[in-house]
């Protein structure tokens, strides 16, 4: 099996690192080699955050090449457009409909691209649009946007459901688990 790549992108504070931790644990439990990479620290304060995940029989680089990622999970609508070069032409894109304005947009100095989803649809065949904030609220925790999107990703990968659920159990305290399991399944059903 060749090395496969998943790229999770979004904005600091959206729970991207936790989502990719859960994903990697699930892949590891399935018996595959896995590496992931992201940048912490200053970048986390509301800036762009990406997490590269690569898995297969033997993985060397934890970061993907251009045109080599199988699935992009974009936690923020506009951020999707920043990482399109990483995706294989036949790759899958999952887009959260949430809009988080960067400072220049807040100040009225730049426009937020309104046509992100349409333009991605023109470039890629498999585009899954997820209203994660609504589904997270429906699951009982508005912060569970990351788990909803993880659920949406899970339906694109061939890992058994039991492995996902075990990874979620390990990641969340009993108090938060129920809402997150629900969020995961709502995302998976999209």
């Amino acid at each position: 099996m060749d090395t496969r790549g998943i790229l999770i992108a979004g904005v600091g504070g959206q729970g991207i690192i936790l989502a990719s931790d859960i994903l990697c644990r699930a892949i590891m439990t399935a018996g595959l080699d896995v590496k992931k990479s992201e940048v912490h620290g200053m970048a986390q304060r509301g800036g762009c955050v990406t997490s590269h995940v690569r898995y297969g029989k033997k993985v060397y680089s934890p970061i993907a090449r251009k045109n080599d990622v199988d699935v992009l999970v974009s936690f923020e609508k506009m951020e999707t457009l920043r990482y399109l070069d990483f995706i294989k032409p036949e790759g899958t894109i999952i887009i959260n409909t949430e809009e988080l304005y960067p400072p220049a947009v807040n100040l009225g100095d730049a426009a937020y691209p309104e046509d992100a989803i349409e333009s991605v649809r023109q470039m890629f065949g498999t585009v899954k649009v997820v209203d994660a904030p609504t589904l997270a609220a429906q699951a009982g925790n508005f912060r569970a946007v990351n788990t909803v999107l993880l659920g949406a990703l899970s339906s694109c990968l061939s890992l058994p459901l039991a492995i996902w659920e075990a990874a979620l159990r390990k990641a969340f305290s009993p108090k938060l688990l129920e809402a997150n399991l629900k969020a995961f399944h709502l995302g998976r059903a999209v």
Binding site: V11, G12, Q44, R45, L81, L84, D85, P102, Y112
Partner: peptide, 16 residues
């Protein structure tokens, strides 16, 4: 390589 991210996007620097 196929390049698709050509359009300029508002930057997203870290913020307080």
């Amino acid at each position: 390589l196929r390049t698709l991210s050509a359009r300029p996007l508002p930057p997203r620097p870290p913020n307080l």
